[in-house]
């Protein structure tokens, strides 16, 4: 089975050392996929390969049955929202949004399209505004309207929320999700924030060092990470080796990953001392130091322990991986 947008064994080599891929990923029509990874993981390269700003060394990109691997960006009909929006400063809002509307379309029809796109992002009547007069959030919405106006086949977003202040970010995220669902457009976006990826993406593809580590829905990544990297990059994770791992129930040669909320204080188990307590309201995070000097976090009731208390810790569920590292 191949999806609406199929990435097939795509690779791109940078200089001599850095390589992205081979990466394969199938994306269904209307699906929202997040590319999640640390900086340098290749997620932005992946997005630029999709947009056509970079050309792949090998592999194919197929959209709706059409091979676009070698097609220039102008022919792909992919809409892109840039990290810093890349609004044309010498054009006004209307001219920016109308930039992609050329060809046989009549003037009046184009103007109607612009108005429609601006209404979609809640900026109706902003046509004659100057770009630099807009707030960051408005600029982001203009960029979105501009990308959507030519009715692209795929929408690409590069760190769509990174330029907004935190208070605005959560609201914008919600609005963005609703908007994408209303337009029902296949969307790929890049982010380095797990919360953003989970919240906005139907599926999340985790990239690391140019490789696709795992692609799946949020629960799957969190509960069944395919690798130690995914386990520790997605959500909070404590990693235990050797004796500490065995004390929590791991076998020889395994390392154990346990999330803070899956650890609890008990009468027996891994012994340690509470070093710090961080109160977050509904719960508290306790930084525990075990006998071999390892430090890990336990999430528990705010009154479960005090700093300096000797404690024992057990795990309600564990993730285990082969212990390659010493």
């Amino acid at each position: 089975m191949t999806g609406f947008l199929a990435v097939q064994a795509i690779t791109k080599q940078w200089a001599h050392t850095v390589t992205v891929g081979p990466i394969s990923l199938d994306i269904a029509r209307g699906e929202i996929v997040a590319l999640l990874g640390p900086s340098g993981s290749g997620k932005t390269t992946m997005l630029r390969l999709l947009a056509g700003f970079e050309t792949a060394d090998s592999g194919r990109i197929v959209v709706d049955g059409e091979d676009v691997t070698a097609a220039p960006p102008a022919r792909r009909r992919f809409g892109m929202v840039f990290q810093h929006y890349a609004l044309f400063p010498h054009l006004d809002v209307g001219e920016n949004v109308g930039f992609g509307l050329t060809g046989s379309r009549e003037r009046g029809a184009a103007a109607a399209k612009v108005a429609e796109a601006l209404a979609l992002v809640d900026l109706a009547g902003f046509e004659r505004r100057k770009v630099h007069e807009l707030s960051g959030g408005q600029q982001q919405r203009v960029a979105l309207a501009r990308a959507l106006a030519p009715e692209p086949r795929v929408l690409l977003l590069d760190e769509p929320l990174s330029n907004l202040d935190p208070a605005l970010r959560e609201r914008t995220r919600r609005e963005l999700r609703q908007l994408i669902q209303r337009v029902a457009i296949t969307t790929v976006f890049v982010t380095h924030e797990q919360e953003e990826a989970f919240d906005l993406g139907d599926r999340v593809a985790v990239l690391n060092a140019g490789r696709l580590e795992q692609a799946g829905v949020a629960d799957e990544l969190y509960e069944h990470p395919a690798s130690l990297f995914v386990a520790s990059f997605v959500g909070r994770a404590n990693v235990f080796h050797g004796a500490a791992a065995r004390a929590l129930g791991g076998r020889d040669g395994q390392l154990v990953v346990a999330r803070p909320e899956r650890l609890r204080f008990a009468a027996s188990g891994l012994a340690g001392v509470v070093r710090e307590r961080r109160y977050t309201g509904p719960a508290a995070f306790y930084l525990v130091e075990s006998g071999d000097g390892a430090r890990f976090e336990v999430m528990a009731e705010p009154g479960a322990a005090r700093v300096g208390d000797p404690v024992h810790v057990t795990a309600s569920s564990l993730l285990t991986f082969p212990d390659g590292a010493p």
């Binding site: 220039p72 892109m80 990290q83 890349a86 044309f88 930039f99 050329t102 690409l156």
Partner: peptide, 22 residues
């Protein structure tokens, strides 16, 4: 910003239009 030229290209502008308009 090189993204300006890329933005024009992704909106379907050919090389000539990108150069003259952006």
């Amino acid at each position: 910003d090189p993204a300006l030229e890329e933005a024009a290209a992704s909106l379907g502008a050919g090389r000539w239009r990108t150069v003259t308009r952006v």
